[in-house]
Amino acid sequence: MKPAAFEHLRPDTAEALAGLLSPEAKLIAGGQSLGPMLNLRLARPARLVGLSAIRALGEIREQDGMIVLGAAVTHARIEDGDSPVPLPPMLRHVARGIAYRAVRNRGTIGGSLAHADPAADWITALTALGARVVLRSAAGTERRVAMPGFVRGAYRTALSPDEIIAAVEIPAAMRDAIWGYDKICRKVGEFADAIGALALHPPTGHVRLVAGATGAAPLVLAEAGAELARSARHPAIPALRDALAAALPGTDPVKLRLLATSLSRAIAKVLPA
């Protein structure tokens, strides 16, 4: 389990990085997902471009009502609240539950989003929080993609080959969100079998109920979310299961049950069942 030979570059500025982007190049930040794939030779890029020397990618700040997390901010920093601006409590809670501390020390929020493993935490949690992803092209132009649209499917995102994830932006109002997050996995630290996430912010009308680890992109349950916000009542598990079954045709009954359970448990953190 040794990687095939590759060229390894570590630019220290965004400009230098821009010149290195190409379809043959693969970006690496913490390497917690890409590293094993390189070792298994499932990924065999000719060129590996490390992001950890670019300081700007590790910054956290607040700007225009958004909390901006640089793409190379590690899960551990979020878990620890190691940030010049306060982070939403849900963000820190989710970070704490990602894999193991050794993984969190190296793994980054941007890397997790770019990898888009359907069972990973950030794609689901950030969808619930109404986050958007800042994508920067080699030419220096930026575009912002809201979270439900960024993940296109299992391991598929809106990233173009000449773009990097520069940052993640989360509405600062989410510091006051009412939230619930639940993850079912076979073992502490393993990838999830089901994730339920709920974030509510009545002043701004934000309501997001999301099922994660579906095997595809996180599923936003808009109707069920709106209904629970309106009624302030915990939906019945069979109703959640029916909503999931309608949205995820062909999913086996056990998986549906797990997804419904984690959704219900996430909601229960906010509204007693």
């Binding site: 049950r257 797990l258 984690s262």
Partner: peptide, 9 residues
């Protein structure tokens, strides 16, 4: 043991 009938754990 305790069995969680909702998650199977």
């Amino acid at each position: 043991v305790e069995v969680d009938p909702e998650s199977g754990r």
